[in-house]
Design a binder for these strands. Structure first.
Length: 399
RNA sequence: GACCCCAUCGUCUAGCCUGGCCUAGGACAUCACCCUUUCACGGUGAUGACGCGGGUUCGAAUCCCGCUGGGGUCGCCA
């Protein structure tokens, strides 16, 4: 088989959505696994909604996830002449016609249109009983730009795309695109419609289900490798019980034919667990560097703090962090003396009458220590604890 | 509504193609216990699923049909 060529084709009309990222990821895995090419095409034919900031956001999110692409970016907005040439071919053949300022493609009105989907097998549509397929397809809008369904066909063929891996919300677009391929005398690619990522109510994931933009996960302190790992497990599995897999292992094991046909609910609990697994694998100096931004965001200036001390602090919390942004809350007592005490904790832990003189005694005990080191502090603490008749929990929380 | 897709624990999934090894395995979450002077990490265990009904077969989670349920699409948006 010839070289595999796939593409991810986002529209710069919003941030990179977690679902789109998963589609991009599966394309990328497939390309890298097969030793093929992964291209990026920017579908910016909607002049109103396409924004430069969104394009930058999408590209930086892809880079953050480690999804590198081959070749130059392809901008649909720069290829209008190409689409126009293609449309003219159809007009010349009598397969398309101008209507007002738009151009419509004459779609076949009877018979069947079908295709062999890599995941679903044969999917077929009966044109006579399918309402939305009956109307002639607009391929050029009256503002002079091509429509999605037309530009996609022209580009996928022109770019030599061999496999179109996209969300299954595109299944109904496929019977619109296939006749265009045929009319243009082009060979359709292999289609593979993968299920969408769902929210808790099993409808396609959107803002009301929680964070959907990749950048939000970055801000909350998720690690890109963890996101990649978690996303790869949504709708796919290596076939055994392995769950924590490195990027290299994923590329090696990824098999498009093992992708599930069922939509998967995005579960933050498990993502957090996966992220925690990755956090624990990090070396302390590396983790410390990753923690700096969250500290700065809180208004602290960690770069002025003693590095050795900071790393000790990070070591102390290493096992507790599952999202980087938690750190300032977790460790605030060590670097912020202006914090408010926890009212609930106060009620829960300070009511015990046995604690009455505990603070004073503890302070005296510590002051009387010959040397202030881990061993003697611990021994003195244990002794006092025992003398007061307190358990570890009763003693540690208040003191 | 029409068309299309889908259907294993609460969630992510293994098993399904190539029926028997499945009294359905793993993970997250939950609960209990262990470890631990707190929390957390780690360990052990518990709860928990083949949507329903018909077939086919000696035998079905696995194959077929129907039903039900859920989702998606019906733009000069992409």
């Amino acid at each position: 088989m010839s070289e595999v060529r796939v593409r991810f084709a986002p529209s710069p009309t919003g941030f990179l959505h977690i679902g789109s990222a998963r589609t991009a990821l599966f394309n990328w895995f497939f390309a890298r696994h097969m030793g093929g090419k992964f291209f990026l095409r920017i579908e910016d034919t909607d002049k109103e909604r396409s924004k430069q900031e969104f394009l930058e956001e999408i590209l930086s999110s892809l880079k953050w996830l480690g999804l590198d692409w081959d070749g130059e970016l392809v901008f649909q907005s720069k290829r209008t002449e190409f689409y126009r040439t293609q449309a003219q071919k159809l007009i010349d053949k009598g397969l398309a016609y101008p209507e007002e300022n738009a151009i419509r493609f004459r779609v076949p009105k009877s018979g069947k249109v079908g295709f062999e989907d890599m995941l679903h097998g044969r999917i077929e549509f009966d044109l006579e009983q399918h309402g939305s397929l009956a109307e002639d397809l607009v391929i050029f809008k009256s503002d002079g730009s091509p429509t999605y369904n037309f530009a996609v066909v022209c580009d996928d063929a022109d770019m030599g795309i061999t496999h179109v891996i996209r969300g299954d919300d595109h299944i109904m677009n496929t019977p619109k695109q296939i006749p265009v391929y045929e009319a243009l005398g082009l060979k359709p690619p292999i289609f593979c419609h993968i299920p969408l990522i769902l929210g808790a109510d099993r409808s396609r994931m959107s803002k009301r289900h929680g964070a959907t933009a990749i950048r939000e996960y970055l801000e909350q302190g998720f690690l890109p490798d963890a996101i990649v790992n978690y996303l790869s497990l949504l709708g796919w599995s290596p076939g055994n019980n392995e769950e924590i897999l490195s990027r290299e292992e994923l590329v090696k094991k990824f098999d498009l034919s093992r992708v599930l046909k069922t939509g998967a609910v995005f579960g933050k609990d498990k993502l957090e667990w996966v992220n925690g697994q990755y956090v624990r694998k990090l070396a302390v100096p590396v983790l410390t560097d990753l923690l700096l931004p969250s500290l700065k965001k809180r208004g602290y200036a960690p770069e002025t703090w003693d590095r050795v001390w900071l790393e000790k602090l990070v070591t102390l919390h290493h096992e507790r962090i599952f999202m980087l942004a938690q750190f300032p809350d977790l460790a605030q007592f060590f670097f912020d003396d202006k914090i408010e005490y926890d009212q609930v904790a106060r009620e829960e832990f300070l009511r015990d009458p046995r604690l009455k003189d505990a603070f004073l005694k503890y302070a005296q005990t510590l002051e009387g220590l010959a040397s202030f080191d881990t061993k003697s502090v611990e021994e003195a603490s244990r002794a006092l604890m025992k003398a007061l008749g307190l358990t570890g929990k009763e003693f540690i929380h208040p003191c």
